[in-house]
């Protein structure tokens, strides 16, 4: 134990710059993937609700994508996209879109019909019903979907090092190949910390938007 701790300290003494470089890569990949999956997942979810007939087909397609293990998606993507950060971002996005998409659909469909009816009956246009009632009511579930996706992205971004995307996965894979426990610990704990921090940030955003739910009838 003493020895591992010593090695960890030694690693940081010699590789501080490299470490922060990989940390920054990891966060930057994760963030890019999150933004892309929201940009795709959200509108597709909305379209699924608007065009109900196609909804099942689209959701099923994304669910199948989700069943494929993230490692397989990444390895398969080498064939079509090559290696490097770009392909990794695309491949990881395929994994992160389904939870966002499905929660957008669930949130939008969860609005009670009588509430939409009340909004319409008061004289809101269809667009106003969407913007002022339906979307705000769906927001908590949408954020939950983003949270799920975020955790998945940060974890899977580790494997992305395999196809040359960089990130903290590099430390872990290096540790595996040269059997150095301290490298596995540094990589693993760092990923865990990013994961926890990102969930905490999303929780704060979540709380802000859901403050109306915290109040209970006294």
């Amino acid at each position: 134990m003493q020895e591992i701790w010593g090695n960890i300290v030694l690693y940081f003494e010699n590789n501080m710059d490299a470490y922060f470089n990989m940390l920054q890569q990891h966060i930057s990949i994760s963030f890019r993937v999150l933004v892309i999956s929201i940009i795709i997942g959200f509108p597709v979810g909305v379209l699924c609700v608007v065009f109900k007939k196609r909804q099942k087909m689209v959701i099923r397609m994304f669910q199948i994508l989700r069943i494929i293990p993230s490692l397989a998606v990444l390895v398969l993507s080498i064939r079509f996209l090559g290696i490097g950060t770009g392909p990794a971002v695309v491949a990881l996005s395929f994994l992160a879109i389904p939870p966002i998409l499905m929660n957008v659909v669930a949130g939008l469909e969860g609005a009670p019909p009588f509430m939409l009816e009340a909004a319409k009956g008061m004289g809101m246009t269809p667009l106003q019903v969407w913007l002022r009632v339906r979307l705000p009511l769906a927001l908590p579930l949408v954020l939950a979907g983003i949270k799920t996706a975020m955790v998945e992205i940060v974890a899977s971004a580790t494997i992305a090092a395999l196809i040359g995307a960089g990130g903290l996965g590099q430390i872990i894979f290096q540790g595996l190949s040269v059997r150095r426990t301290e490298l596995l610990l540094i990589g693993g704990v760092s990923v865990a910390i990013i994961s926890i921090l990102s969930v905490l940030i999303l929780d704060l955003i979540d709380r802000f938007f859901q403050r109306y739910k915290r109040y209970k009838l006294h």
Binding site: P112, F114, M115, E117, A118, A119, K120, G121, M122, G123, M124, T125, R132, V133, P136, L137, L139, Y212, K213
Partner: peptide, 29 residues
Amino acid sequence: VQVRRRIGYAIQQVGLFPHMTVAQNIAVV
């Protein structure tokens, strides 16, 4: 839409919007 804005409408389930305060709910129309 114009017809509905000139007519008050209340239903059994009330349909207050849960994400808006009482003041915001009354201020919708």
